[in-house]
Design a binder for these strands. Structure first.
Lengths: 164, 164
DNA sequence: CGCCGTTACTTCAACCTTCAAGTAATTGGT
DNA sequence: ACCAATTACTTGAAGGTTGAAGTAACGGCG
């Protein structure tokens, strides 16, 4: 059994679809970063980290949980939380129940930052994604996203598969 | 006239949609990069540059056209083409009709590289995006992508709006 | 109790990207 | 014909990301 050396190329319709998706993949993250950077001085990844903490019990998460939530490597998270710590928005402390874990905790100024940044961010998400789509398209997008994610990462629902 | 200070938050359904889209935005590019890096030793952006040249007349493009095609800044392209040049896949020469333009030209080894890399890349795109979707969903995705892009960048159809 | 392997995280170096100048070629106004 | 402005691209420094290696804490098994 072997796959053919010449694959099935994309037909005209598929190419258009692929082009549209690629554009979205490249530019939407850029647009979100731009808005957050301009109005709140944080990257989208930093925002995800702060937002994750703000939504969790005690405003606290283990680094490894937080990495999964924010969809980044532990290494990246470590660097970013280091910076957020320097800015006074997060502090870290070893988990008393297991010294291997590190707990990241949102400080009061960190909470204030999220409260300040969230409305503008949500407005931008609405403007760029939800407003241009019909309700039906929103449902379609959800299903499409799920299917693609299942192909990208079959042990889905947010497993700890990221390396490092 | 002013927008309300408290924006309309995302309802449960919208949040799920947003989560699915975010995952796709973060992980699909990563997956594509991984495959290309492993099987061809190039990043997705480098591949776009080589592929763009390979599809154009004379295997030649102006740097500024190429930047628009590959959806990157001119600065980024300049750096990347510099590296591709060192690897012998591209060469540059000033445009004889207007010395301000620089023509990027795909070399024979560069062409060979594209021919080598393309089948695996197309197969991966099929596996991750087209195979998991029905024909109807592919059409929906195309329309959704277009609408979102129109919101992100209203003077659409690939304008030269990138800074720097 | 004392290793050994695993888990969770951090650090370091290499690399890439971005942003802000800088350079070179051409156009347009006078 | 000249000078200023514009266009197209390049460069350099600052900062972020990645992957590999390092550290520290825990769990299991003899």
């Amino acid at each position: 059994m072997e796959t053919s050396r010449e694959p099935r190329w994309l037909d005209a319709e598929e190419q258009e679809t692929w082009l549209a998706l690629l554009s979205m993949l490249v530019r939407l993250p850029g647009a979100l970063d731009t808005q957050l950077q301009r109005e709140a001085g944080v990257s989208h990844f930093e925002y995800q980290v702060l937002a994750g903490l703000s939504m969790s019990a005690e405003r606290t998460m283990r680094m490894s949980e937080l990495a999964i939530f924010a969809e980044g490597s532990l290494s990246r998270l470590s660097q970013v939380v280091g910076r957020l710590e320097k800015r006074g928005w997060v502090r870290r402390t070893p988990d008393p129940t297991d010294g291997r874990y590190t707990l990241a905790i949102l400080t009061e100024p960190g909470w204030a930052k999220v409260v300040e940044a969230a409305p503008g961010h949500v407005a931008e998400v609405r403007r760029l994604v939800f407003d241009p789509l019909t309700r039906a398209q929103q449902r379609q997008l959800r299903e499409i996203g799920r299917r693609v994610m299942r192909a990208v990462d079959p042990d889905d629902s947010c497993p700890a598969d990221r390396p490092n």
